[in-house]
Simulated scan of single mutants.
Amino acid sequence: MTGATVPENAPDHCPGVESEQAGKADACNGCANQEICASDKPKGPDPALPLIRERMRHVKRKILVLSGKGGVGKSTFTAQLGWAFAADENFQTGIMDVDICGPSIPTILGIANEQVHSSASGWSPVYVQDNLGVMSVGFMLPSAKDAVMWRGPKKNGLIAQFLKDVDWGELDWLVVDTPPGTSDEHLSVVQYLKESGIDGAVLVTTPQEVALQDVRREIDFCRKVGVRIIGLVENMAGFVCPNCKNTSEIFRPTTGGAARLAKECGIELLGSVPLDPRIGKSADYGVSFLDEYPDSPATTAFLDIIDRIQEILDKEGPSS
């Protein structure tokens, strides 16, 4: 969206409507908008970028939460991360949900019935508590049953609005929950935030090889677009019985799990979170698992991982 050409190592995707390659790149073949994009209309910087820079100037740290595969607990981890940051009253935290076709953050945070309000300063986030604000397309749907059937340009436009039109105020943390894969939403977030700075990405996986394969693609994506990988989180790493406290493997790490993947790829394994059935219950009821079940081994694992993320980022200055 911001560059004039497509880098040689760029992923196979739309080059952006203002690129010189718009409508001409291999990825454009078969696209319904190819003829429009290839026209001789003047191309230039996205007019949203200066507005995004101004909004993001007030955000100290920006973290992406990624997963190559759906169903690995990425949104649940994002919610716990947001709650943990907001537990410190000195921190102002925001969660931006760009999983446009499957926005689960409002439900997990217990604010699914809220709506977005606008003012002279822009859209107001929905607040879980005084220092934890959230923005999601889920607040804009007539009902939870409505499907979002949007093509790339409309998705990109909404993400730009979330970044330039939402009155986030002064934030210490902005955590961005993304959908599975490496598609429109991921590219838009990275390109829109490139100048403002992204502190890094946390990748979430489960132990089995079918999930690890997709995470390898996510690692490749991060490296190609220049997003630093803070580390890898292994979710659902064994089942903890709430009664006897014994742990058993549900998703067997047949190829060595996240530990081996982290070693192979030269990234840090931030930690492993065991599967506690009360995590799902907390998500359904929209309450903080960390607060409701402080004695769970999963809570200990979550907090250790979050402490490690803060430790890594505290060694460096803010991205903006």
Rank of each mutant, 00 (worst) to 15 (best):
H58M: 06
K62H: 15
K62R: 15
I63E: 10
L64P: 09
L64K: 00
L64Y: 05
V65A: 01
S67I: 06
G71N: 04
G71S: 12
G73P: 06
F77I: 02
T78D: 13
Q80W: 11
G82N: 14
G82S: 11
F85M: 15
A87P: 07
A87V: 09
D88E: 04
E89I: 03
N90M: 13
T93S: 06
M96F: 07
C101P: 04
G102T: 01
T107P: 02
T107N: 12
I108N: 08
I108W: 12
I111A: 09
A112M: 13
E114M: 00
W123M: 13
S124K: 01
P125S: 15
V126Y: 12
D130H: 03
V134T: 10
V134K: 10
S136R: 00
F139P: 02
M140E: 11
S143I: 00
A144W: 03
K145Y: 00
D146V: 03
R151P: 14
R151N: 15
P153C: 12
G157A: 15
A160M: 03
A160D: 05
A160N: 04
Q161A: 14
F162Y: 03
E170L: 03
L171R: 02
D172K: 09
W173M: 12
D177T: 01
T178I: 09
E185R: 01
H186Q: 04
H186C: 07
